[in-house]
Design a protein around this nucleic acid. Structure first.
Length: 556
RNA sequence: AGCCCCUUGGUGUAAUGGUAACACUACGGAUUUUGAUUCCGUCUUUCCAGGUUCGAGUCCUGGGGGGGCUGCCA
């Protein structure tokens, strides 16, 4: 929260426009197409646009949430709702400024008529294939359409006919009349309108012709008096046409398009098409599967919104197409959760520890801090009994160097409780350790180890009698990205079959007290969030691992 | 191939033409009733070649490398 973002040429432009008086009030917009769920990559655009509005709120700045729904074939209302929920979750407000590009259909139409009247647009009745062929290519200039020189009257009549349904799909389009030889292919008489006899989620059957993005977008921005239209790099090449539309249409404002680079993460694929495939083919439980790189998936995974915002703040805004290490985001998650997550004990791979000098059927109340550094988070009582579960790898028959936990004859502290001394262990026929025996040292709760006792570690534990069973889900990366050198050219992405591991674990009962929206830290195992969505009615609690702890022992 | 954009450690970013720095990662060390946290430290950087300049990461020219554009998608 301390330092402001530095890498931000866009904020510099805006500050200059404000200072020079070019714009007394800044208006930005976040314009998703409702054809899928928002993902981590969208966070950058959201934080940028809404962030700028927040920072300039004193001068009346605002950010619009606008659904760019000009293509009736790909858009659904379900997505509108999820997008609103995700933007809110990130902590941003659009207030009254919720818009739909489809509400301006009449305006785009008027602008198109205006262009026609000025000889800047014409109805082309060539087929899509013909238009494609005559557009030329990267090195060959395009050739004019035979319909390019129609009269204004003829074009007006034809365009009216398009609106009236007099053309079938593909029979006619409206094109801007610019330059068929332009080195920028976007300028080679781009299509403005096409016939689409489709039902639109917002306007129903009212229209049978729909504007293209390149034509509609600048008009949407201008209509809303957007001052700075911030978009990603792939639209850079479209900017000359954006400006052409603004210059040649009767618009109430002159927005400026500025491009910035997308947010990409290592090991993370955010193509909407691929994510949609995962959902449709059932590889994941839905768009909000905790493994998904969607914002709703992140939410269920327990990733705090503030971590995503801080990540965006720190990675900044540039025009450089880079890939941010996902570890950067994981750091922000841990950094935040470390301060707010209550601590609880859990055992994922249980091994029975029998405390020989604690009578069976008897238990002892032990008070544990909910947080090592924050007394305000209070304490809880955990019951200790003769038999407790400990993590199997907290015991080694033959301890390695630098292993400080349990082994024959060694001491270890049961976290928050007594120091115990290992007195023996049992194995089954296969040589697997089935039980560890120990004795506790009275008087060691809250006290240092007695003279002569070496106790360098504290392990977590759950009373076998009092603990509850819960399902915990450990996640690995969803995709495996194979090295291009290994494959025959190009990266290959495959779904990681080990991306989800479900474990029956023992957890302390106080875990169930944790607020469902909160993360808690399982001592030494990482941060977990209770999953309400997947929880079966009845017995079990389900926890999703948000992110693991940094664990130098585990890495060895 | 033509046009446009970009190029600073492993990663993301800083640096009025004036000592190349911050964060993450990795690796060490100290502290620790979480092998966490905290603290300290180490490794590694201006794509190349010319030019302008007292002085270039920054300006100029050329080259290399990366990305984008040939939808009636957005």
């Amino acid at each position: 929260m301390s330092e402001s973002p530095k890498s931000d040429f866009i904020r510099e432009i805006i500050a200059a426009d404000l200072a020079s008086g070019k714009h007394p009030k800044i208006i930005t917009r976040f314009p998703p197409e409702p054809n899928g769920y928002l993902h981590l990559g969208h966070a950058r655009a959201i934080c940028l646009n809404f962030g700028i509005a927040e920072e300039n709120a004193a001068s009346g700045a605002r950010c619009h949430l606008r659904f760019d729904d000009t293509n009736p074939e790909k858009e659904e209302t379900e997505y509108v709702e999820s997008i609103k929920a995700d933007v809110k979750w990130l902590g941003f407000e659009w207030g009254e400024n919720l818009f739909f590009a489809s509400d301006y259909f009449e305006f785009y139409y008027e602008c198109a008529v205006h262009l026609i009247k000025n000889g800047l647009a014409y109805v082309d009745e060539q087929s899509a294939e013909q238009i494609k062929e005559t557009r030329g290519n990267l090195t060959v200039p395009g050739t004019p359409s035979p319909h390019r020189e129609r009269t204004v009257e003829e074009n007006l009549a034809l365009f009216s006919k398009m609106r009236a349904g007099g053309f079938e799909e593909g029979e006619a389009v409206l094109r801007a009349k610019i330059d068929m030889a332009s080195p920028n292919i976007v300028l080679r008489d781009p299509v403005l309108y096409r016939v689409l006899k489709a039902s639109h989620h917002n306007t129903g059957e009212a229209w049978c012709l729909y504007p293209m993005y390149d034509f509609a977008h600048p008009l949407e921005d201008a209509h809303e008096h957007v001052t700075h239209s911030l978009c990603t790099l792939e639209f850079e090449i479209h900017r000359p046409f954006y400006d052409w539309v603004i210059e040649n249409c009767p618009v109430p404002a002159k927005p400026r398009q500025i491009e910035f680079s997308r947010l990409n993460f290592t090991y993370t694929i955010m193509s909407k098409r691929k994510l949609l495939t995962l959902v449709k083919e059932g590889h994941v439980s839905g768009w909000d599967d905790p493994r998904m790189p969607t914002l709703s998936g992140a939410r269920r995974r327990g990733i705090p919104a503030i971590a995503i915002r801080k990540l965006c703040e720190k990675t900044g805004i540039t025009k450089f197409q880079g890939v941010t290490d996902i570890a950067q985001l994981e750091f922000e998650i841990r950094d935040h959760l470390n301060t707010v997550a209550p601590r609880r004990m859990a055992v994922l791979d249980p091994l029975k520890l029998v405390i020989g000098n604690l009578p069976a059927g008897q238990s002892e109340d032990i008070e544990l801090d909910n947080h090592p550094k924050d007394p305000a988070m209070g304490t809880r009582v955990v019951k200790l009994s003769r038999e407790v579960w400990i993590e199997a790898d907290d015991f080694m028959e033959v301890p390695e160097k630098k292993f400080y936990r349990l082994g024959p004859g060694r001491h270890v502290r049961l976290r928050g409780g007594y120091i115990v001394k290992c007195t023996g262990f049992e194995k089954d026929a296969s040589g697997k350790i089935t039980q560890v025996n120990c004795e506790y040292l009275p008087g060691t709760i809250g006290a240092d180890a007695p003279e002569g006792v070496e106790c360098r570690a504290a392990i977590h534990w759950v009373s076998a009698e009092h603990g509850v069973e819960a399902e915990v889900r450990l996640y690995d990366r969803l995709f495996t990205v194979e090295d291009p050198d290994a494959a025959e050219g190009g990266f290959v992405t495959v779904i990681n079959p080990d991306s989800l591991k479900s474990i029956e674990a023992w957890v302390e009962p106080a875990l169930l007290d944790v607020e469902p929206e909160w993360n808690c830290q399982f001592e030494r195992l990482g941060y977990f969030v209770a999953d309400r969505v997947d929880q079966q009615p009845g017995v079990k609690a389900v926890f999703n691992r948000t992110v693991g702890l940094r664990d130098s022992w585990a890495k060895k």
